[in-house]
Structure formats: C-alpha cells, structure tokens
Design a protein around this nucleic acid. Structure first.
Length: 753
DNA sequence: GGAGACTGCGTTTTT
DNA sequence: CGCAGTCTCC
C-alpha cells in the first residue's frame, strides 16, 4: 500500500538528506532525540525499497540486543514484505554468528561456548590456581581488565613486549588464552578478535563478505572500540560504504574500550564527504535542552553540535537538596505520586542514578509506599546463580565433556560429592586423558555411589536432549537435577524457583531468530558444514545456550506492567521518558571520584550527565543528599559541580531545606583552574542539619567544603568525612593527586583560612 | 562431607 | 551493608 514516497514523509531536511545519501561513506552526527534511529531504519527501508540494496546485502550493527530488535522491528514495519537475510544485530551477536558458521577456519570447536564476564573471572581464578600464582601477586580482576583492554585494542599476548612489571600479566594473558582454547571457550572480546583475525587471515572469506555486504550501517558509532572499527573496515573492504551514526557527546563507554576517536579516524580514513548534523530535537522542552547544551559546552574536545527545539521552554528543572539519602528517596516518592495523580503513567517516569548501589534506598522507599517499580540492570536474568546452574546442566546435556560445567554442578545441589571425590575424579581424568565426566567410568569400582549417580544423571540428560524439545528439556532438567527441589526447600528460594520457571518460559518462547541462529551458509565457503544442519535439537540447544550468554535477559517477567523505571544513567541511554528524576548529584558520586584520576574522566562524566538530562521530555528533577550511607558508613557529600554548570535561569530550587555549608556548590579547590568556582551560594551560614552536627561528631573539626593543607599533597578541599573518634577520616580532593582518604589521627592536616 | 560462622572487600558504568 | 570465599566445627 505504501508508495516510495511516504517512507520519507515527515523527515526534516537533514534527516531526508541523510536517508537518501548516495552509496558513499557518511557520518551522521545525531544529537540526542534528533531522530537517529528513525534515520537509520528509514535509510535501510529506503535502500531496499529503491532496489539499491538486497536484504542479504545489508549489515546493520548496534550495541544492545534491545536496539537491534527495535531496529529490525521498525524496518519490517516500514516494508510490505518482511526482508529476509539482513544481518541486524550486535557486534557480539554477529561475530558469534560468523564464528559459528566458520568455526573450523576460526580454529574453534563447533560448539564453542561464550564466557560472560563472570565466567571469565572464574576462568581467570582457575588459571591462577593452576599456574600457582597467588591472588595477591596478581589480582584476578586486574588481569581480567588487562586481557580485555588488550583484546579490545586488537592485541594478543604475543604482540606485547614483555617489559618489566607487566611481564607476569603478559604471561598469564597467554596462559589464559591457552586455557580458553583448550576448553573451547570464548570471552566477549575474543568473539570480536577471533572474527577479525579470521577475516584478516582468510582472503576467500573476506572477499565473500565484502561482496555480500553492499551496505554497512553502524549505530552508536561513538561507542565502538578499535577492534570493532577494524572489524567494520574488514567487512567493508575498499569498496563498500559505511554509514555511521553517532554522537560524540554521548560517548560514555571508554571504560570498556570505546574510542571516540574512531569518529574522526573514520572521517579521515574514508575521506568522508557526507557529514550531516541532526540538531533538531523532537524530545525535550526548551529548558531541558538549554541545560544540556550549557552543560556539555564545558567539554573541550567536541565535534560540535547544538540542539534546538521548536517546542516551548516548558517547565523549569527542579533541584532538591535532601539532608540524607533516605529523605531524598522519600522526596522522590512524593513527587512521583504527584506526577501520577496528574496523569503521568509510571512507566513514563524514570529514576536514574550513577551507580547500581544507589537503587537500594530508592527501592526501599518505593516499596514502603507501595509504588510498583522495575529495576533494570543490576544482576541480570541470565547472570543469576540458579540460572547459571541450570544452564550448566543443559550444557552437560549437549556436551558431557565440558569440565567447567561439570565442576559447577557436580555437587550442586549437594549430593554427597565433596572436595575429596572431585579430586579423585580430577586425578583419574589427568591420567586417562579424559574429561571429568569420562573419568568416572575410568574409576570403576573406586567411584563412590553419588559419583556414579551423577554420571548416570549426565547420561540421562544427554538422552533427554535428543528426545525432548527445548522447553521440555529445560523443564525436565530443572526437576531431574534437583535444582527445583533444592530451591523449593530453601527459606528464601521462592524467587529462584520462579526464575527457573522463567527459564522454561524463555525456552518455550525461543525462536532462533536471524541474529542467533547459524546462518544459511555458502557451501563453497565453508564446505564442512552441511546445509540444513541448523535445525536439529542439538543445534537449537546450542543456539539457546549462546543466546543466554549474549542476551542479558531484559525482557523478563513484569515487563508489561505499568511500573516506575529504575536504572543507571548508562542503562538509560537511548531511552526517553516524560519525567526523569536524576538522583545522587554529589561530588564523588556524580562525577564519580574514580573518574577524576582518569584521563578524560571528568569529560566522560559530563557526557554521562548530558545523556541523563536529555532523557527527559517534559519534567526533569535533580536531587542530591547531604549524607549518604555507603559501604555501611555515612558519608557526607557536597553538590556535584555539574549543578553549577547548568544555566541558573533554567533551574528552580524546591523544598525548604536550608542549604548548609556543605551545600555550597563552590568546590573552589586551590590550584585548580578548571573547577567551576563561580557558584553563587550562601557560604558561611550556620552549617545546618546532619552534615554539620555529624561533622562535629567526627571530632576532626573539619567540615565539608573546607580548604586544608597537607605536607605531601599540598592544598585540597574536604569533600567527605567518615568514621569517628580514632577512626575519623576525611576524603580530600587534592588537585592533581585526586581524592585521598586520610586517617585524621595520623595525617598531618592543617585548615586553611 | 556438609552446614554454619567468620572475615575481608567492594561498585562506576556493560556487550 | 551485603556478598563471596574461607575456615571451623559437627
């Protein structure tokens, strides 16, 4: 019914230009709320509709599964016929798909398993144990970060000069990769790196994909890491144009290797002639947009962009300063109630925070008030222990020789197989050169009853995997393994039992989509895989297992209900809400103190703040707490410097709480020219409420906001106080030294007038 | 071999 | 404070 034209109806001139660009490299700088997704999806639909692209020639990449699903749905909605054969997915999902197709060429076992970060960390701990390196000598988390950041930039242990202190790290990196190879597992970064190496090495494959993908489109390009960019370049070859959409102001994933520089690199390397800015914002009212523009203007390195709207100024931003985190939460609940009474749906309201830990207090207050809410992020569905256990059983059903899964559940739920027995099995496996499962048979009469029973269980699982459909298998596994019974017997096990039920539901609903399933294969490319293999029960189970590793499991129970939305600012990127509450706007929290010592850290925090502000359509409420419970201790905070970077005429302070000395936004750290020291605030008033009285209780005589001098670190500003008596400590921001926490009984600190 | 207490540590953000 | 990993005692 649709003619070629109505696809393009309603686009503004810039959007239209972007959608209908010729097949040449293009960079679309798309501001928040400027219709980025619309441009991307319309472009795909337009390419197909105009016959410029065949569906199989389209490769569109995003970062989250959710974004990929939305993109696919929107493209399909624009077309009369569902396009088959497009590759739309996440970087990781598409790499997984490619590696499944060419596992042999990639040097992987056919059923390689994907490690999520948890799995990776346990693999690393296991490695340290076998390598006999104590965890003090090498912190597992540090090694994990080392490995991941190396891989994210495309480097393997062999590429790294083994110099000085890092020598151990490099060696362990190599050993880790060897262990993964032996166990047939692949971590997130490895998915990408393997794929890149495969394409680099295999000219035939590279040629195949170069010819196949005539149109490559990338969403959120500012979040790509060097490895992902390299992957894109390999797929595009010299001929194929990349259509990249991104916003440098929303680059917030540097910590996981994202390299904003990819945007300018791309411009340069491809001599990009089509640079289009989408600056008209269709989301937020004027005051909100002004605040965002003003704030982000404080960042030095930007490609440059200024959002505008023709909606009116709308409401002013509201700022509330609470004496404590608990009172902040209560205020938010009251405000949510008011919005609700005024007709705003709960699902149109978001509570945002910098770090996950902050959700606790908010949840508590919401629970007390009986407000339905839903927390996104935190521990995800597929990361829950009970789900991981169930998945381990399912993996054993598919691959009985998987030692990692074997170890995970051999005695869970407890079935009388202790450390001694496991050791026995391990030795037998070592000697016979078999898997742990295989070793039980080797043990013969030496195997204990429980061990034999477990081996039998694995055998039954295996048979069940052949006979039952996926959901039936999952249900049977959950029961037969004893997991269900175990959690039913547990006092607080109800949630876990429910989650296991959800897993069965997820299995029942699992339709291997384009993105998860082994693709149609060109036999001349990978002759080792017979076509049609894709549909057997084993393949479906494998696809489900991979899916579980790649999909965080957003869409779990309760997604449909009208509930308040709680999430981190990171998780909110790409979303929009009628009303947004941005909480915890305190120095040290937002911007986070750890970011201050990082290169470009403060600017990234500011971008994060920018993302948060631009989520709101109509109402934006900002709040902070003068005192906050963290790690079991009360910490005192001052206003985030970002509040001083908002245009005063857009912000209205609400509530009658007197602002204490601690509330002075000033943060005029001596020797730091960059701090926005211009905040007007009633300094010198009698310090009020909690902060002041508790500060005195701290016995230090110090107060937040005060300037002090330290023999080694020089001058600094007190940003927080903790402990009391002989344990009294102060968190002090020292110019280039960052924030230090000093024990006041020991540290020599002098107040500066 | 297993259940419970104990200690030490951490959270900034995530595919 | 809450969790994970370790230790201790049954």
């Amino acid at each position: 019914m649709a003619s070629g034209m109505d696809l393009l109806a309603g686009l503004n001139p810039e959007q239209l230009a972007a959608v209908t660009l010729p097949d040449e490299p293009a960079l679309i700088l798309a501001g928040a709320g400027s219709g980025k997704t619309r441009v991307l999806t319309t472009r795909i639909a337009w390419l197909l509709r105009e016959g410029r692209a065949h569906p199989a020639g389209v490769l569109a990449v995003t970062f989250t599964n959710k974004a990929a699903r939305e993109m696919l749905a929107r493209v399909e909605a624009m077309l009369t016929l569902a396009p088959r054969g497009m590759w739309i997915g996440t970087f990781h999902g598409l790499c997984n798909r490619m590696l499944r197709a060419h596992w042999k060429d990639a040097g992987l076992p056919q059923a390689f398993q994907i490690l999520d970060s948890q799995d990776q960390l346990s693999a690393i701990k296991r490695l340290l144990k076998t390598a006999n390196v104590s965890e003090e000598r090498c912190a597992p988390r540090e090694l994990q970060m080392f490995v991941n950041s190396a891989k994210d930039s495309g480097r393997r242990a062999g590429d790294m000069g083994s110099q000085g202190a890092d020598r151990l790290m490099v060696e362990l990196f190599a050993a880790y990769d060897a262990q993964c190879q032996k166990e047939g597992s692949v971590d997130f970064a490895e998915l990408l790196l393997r794929c890149v190496e495969l394409l680099l090495r295999n000219e035939i494959l590279r040629g195949h994909y170069n010819r196949r993908f005539t149109h490559i489109l990338v969403d959120e390009f500012q979040d790509t890491n060097p490895l992902q960019y390299r992957w894109l370049k390999l797929l595009a070859g010299r001929e194929r144009p990349i259509f990249a959409v991104g916003d440098d102001d929303q680059s917030i994933y540097r910590f996981r290797g994202a390299h904003v520089g990819n945007m300018s690199d791309f411009q340069r390397e491809y001599d990009v002639k089509h640079l289009i800015r989408l600056e008209q914002n269709y989301r937020s009212h004027g005051n909100i947009l002004d605040a965002a523009n003003h704030l982000i203007g404080n960042n030095a390195r930007r490609l440059g962009k200024r959002l505008w709207t023709d909606a009116g100024p709308g409401e002013m931003l509201r700022l509330f300063e609470a004496p404590s985190d608990v009172l902040e939460a209560e205020w938010v609940v009251e405000e949510v109630d008011r919005l609700r009474e005024a007709g705003t749906r709960l699902s149109d309201i978001a509570l945002l925070y910098r770090s996950n830990a902050q959700s606790r207090v908010l949840e508590h207050a919401l629970f007390q008030a009986g407000v339905p809410y839903r927390v996104y992020g935190g521990l995800r569905f597929f990361e829950r222990a009970e789900i991981k256990h169930a998945l381990a059983y399912l993996r054993l059903a598919a691959h009985p020789d998987d030692d990692v899964s074997f170890s995970r559940v051999v005695n869970f739920p407890p079935r009388g197989i202790g450390a001694r027995s496991v050791e026995l099995v391990q030795e037998a496996a070592q000697q016979a050169g078999t898997s742990l499962h295989g070793a039980i048979a080797q043990l013969g009469a030496r195997a204990t009853g429980p061990l034999k029973a477990f081996a039998a269980l694995v055998g039954e699982l295996r048979a069940a995997a052949r006979e039952r459909d996926l959901a039936g298998l999952v249900e049977w596994t959950v029961e037969k393994s004893g997991l269900a019974a175990h959690y039913r017997a547990e006092r607080d096990g109800a949630d876990r039992v429910e989650n296991l039920g959800e897993l069965i539901t997820a299995a029942a609903g699992f339709r291997p989509g384009d993105a998860d399933f082994p693709p149609e294969l060109a036999p001349e490319i990978s002759p080792e895989i017979p076509p049609g293999e894709g549909a057997g029960p084993a393949a479906i189970l494998n696809a489900f297992l991979a899916h579980a590793q790649l999909e965080s499991g957003d869409n779990q129970a309760g997604a449909g209900e009208d509930a308040l939305q709680l999430m981190t600012v990171h998780a909110a990127k790409g979303l929009e809400f009628d009303a947004v509450f941005l909480t915890g706007l305190e120095e040290g929290l937002f911007p986070h103190e750890n970011s201050l010592s990082e290169e470009d850290g403060l600017e990234e925090e500011r971008r994060l703040m920018y993302v948060a502000i631009t989520r709101a359509r109509r109402v934006l409420s900002l709040s902070l707490a003068q005192s906050r419970m963290m790690h079991g201790q009360t910490r005192y905070g001052i206003r985030s410097r970002f509040l001083a970077e908002l245009p005063p005429e857009c912000v209205r302070q609400v509530g009658s709480r007197p602002s204490s000395a601690a509330a002075v936004g000033g943060w005029a750290g001596p020797g730091r020219g960059s701090g926005p020291a211009r905040t007007a605030a009633p300094a010198g008033h009698a310090p009020a409420l909690a902060a002041a009285s508790r500060t005195e209780g701290n016995g230090s005589g110090l107060r937040v906001g005060q300037s002090v001098r330290h023999a080694k670190f020089g001058e600094g500003v007190v940003v927080g106080l903790a402990g009391s008596g002989s344990d009294a400590r102060a968190q002090i921001q020292f110019g280039s030294w960052g924030v230090k926490e000093l024990l006041l009984a020991v540290a020599k600190i002098q107040p500066v007038a």
